[in-house]
Structure formats: structure tokens, C-alpha cells
Nucleic acid binder design. Structure first.
Lengths: 110, 110
DNA sequence: TTTAATAGTTCGGCATTATTGAACTATCGA
DNA sequence: TCGATAGTTCAATAATGCCGAACTATTAAA
């Protein structure tokens, strides 16, 4: 009934200090999610479908991957119209786990 | 019947170039395995029980964790008497995934 | 202002993966 | 040879992951 205010995040995002290392690694330990993170690292703001690693992946699976990335403190999602806009929480993540994301991204598909 | 020759590895170890990044990350994405890897990074050669993160963990679980680390190219296991000796495949892993293990270990329990 | 289309989320069932007790194998020491 | 040690393997249960189907919210068109 009450409509969403545009900037009001519909999702809960953890504080980075509450994210354990193994959770962060788990979120990155999947080639589809890795691709999504790499895209977000390159593109700043992406809707869920645009962040998808390919179009073969079902919507529900995609939604689940993004939920996991959110829980790991890797992305922030806010609603804008009917799209959900995702951005990498790069600075915060790097502050929490210095050098980790760089190392992972540098080794992607190597 | 045929006894094990001491230096003959009883286990199969992958070539590092055959280990995909997500498998390596998956192996590291567990706090027990992270502890084991950190111990091996500090101690060079450890039996399975000595590599264990704590003594509460069942033998079969421990064995399974080590199998996973082996499959990810992180450790090498050889038999010596009735013990299995585990060592980190540090140089090889670093050559395959430069900076990754360093970044992970540096961020452990931070 | 219905109606339809779009962009997702959530739910529930099936499949895969993890954990662990129990039984087994191999080696060493007495 | 007997017992203890250091593991592995197996099988059953528990926990996770994947995805189709149904649902919600927003926008656009009629």
C-alpha cells in the first residue's frame, strides 16, 4: 500500500565489519558471481538483468546470487522505479579486506 | 598386499593450471580450512591431526577438508609411516594465482 | 483507469554437497 | 602377535543450492 520511496533501500545491507572473511570468500567462490562482480567493478551501476553473467541463467537464480553478494557486503542494491540498481561497495570492501578483491579480480579467468 | 613405498604419494594432486579460480576460492571459503592453511603456511609439514583447526572436529570431517584442499591444489599429501604429511604447495599456488593466498592470509581473523 | 508488460522477489520441491559415526586398512611398538 | 595409532572410506542424515511457478510493484499504453 505505502509505495517505496525511491532512495529508501528495500534490502538490508550488512556493516562490513560484520562480514566474516569466509562469507566474503564464499560469495566470490562461484564463477557466475565472479563475472557479476567483475562487471560491477567495470560498470558502476547495473540493474539485476544487466549484471547477469549470461541470459541463460534463470531470474530466481540470479536474484539469489545477488542476495548472496549483498549479504557478503559486496554490493548495494537500491530501488529505482521498477529496477533494482546494484553497485559494488568497493571502497568499504577494500577497507575491510585490503587487497582481497584486487587479487581475486586480477586472477579471474587467468 | 603391495605395501606403499614411502615416497609414493597415495593421493592424486591436480596440476595447478587445471585448478579453476572458483574452486580455489571455495576451498578457502571455510574458517576451519582457512585455519589449516594458515598453520601449514607457518609450519611447513604437518600430519593431518596436527593440521586440524581444533580437536573437536571429527576425523572423517578433517579428512574431507584435506581432500578438498588437495583438490584445490593448495596442499600436497604424502605418506610417511602411518602418518600423512601435508605441505602447502605455496610456490606453485602463488604462480597460478599471484597474490591471492597472501591477500587471504593477511585478512584472516582481521 | 483498466490492461499489459517489465523487473524483479519469494516459495517450495528436487538435486547437490557437507558432516559425521562406524567400520576398515596400514603401520608401528611392545 | 596384539594393541594402539593415524588415518581413509562408506552410508546416512543435514544443510545448501538451483530453478520453475506464482506473486508484487512499477510503468506504459489503450
Amino acid at each position: 500500500m505505502v509505495p517505496y520511496i525511491d532512495d529508501m533501500p528495500r534490502f538490508t545491507h550488512p556493516r562490513l565489519e560484520d562480514v566474516p572473511l569466509d562469507l566474503a570468500l564464499h560469495a566470490l567462490a562461484d564463477s557466475n558471481r565472479l563475472t557479476m562482480v567483475a562487471r560491477l567493478a567495470a560498470t558502476e551501476r547495473l540493474s539485476c538483468t544487466d549484471a547477469a553473467p549470461c541470459d541463460a541463467i534463470p531470474k530466481s537464480t540470479l536474484s539469489n546470487h545477488l542476495k548472496l553478494l549483498r549479504a557478503a557486503g559486496l554490493i548495494e542494491t537500491t530501488q529505482a522505479g521498477r529496477e533494482m540498481i546494484n553497485t559494488l561497495r568497493r571502497a568499504e570492501f577494500d577497507r575491510r579486506f585490503p587487497g582481497l578483491l584486487d587479487a581475486v579480480l586480477a586472477n579471474r579467468s587467468a
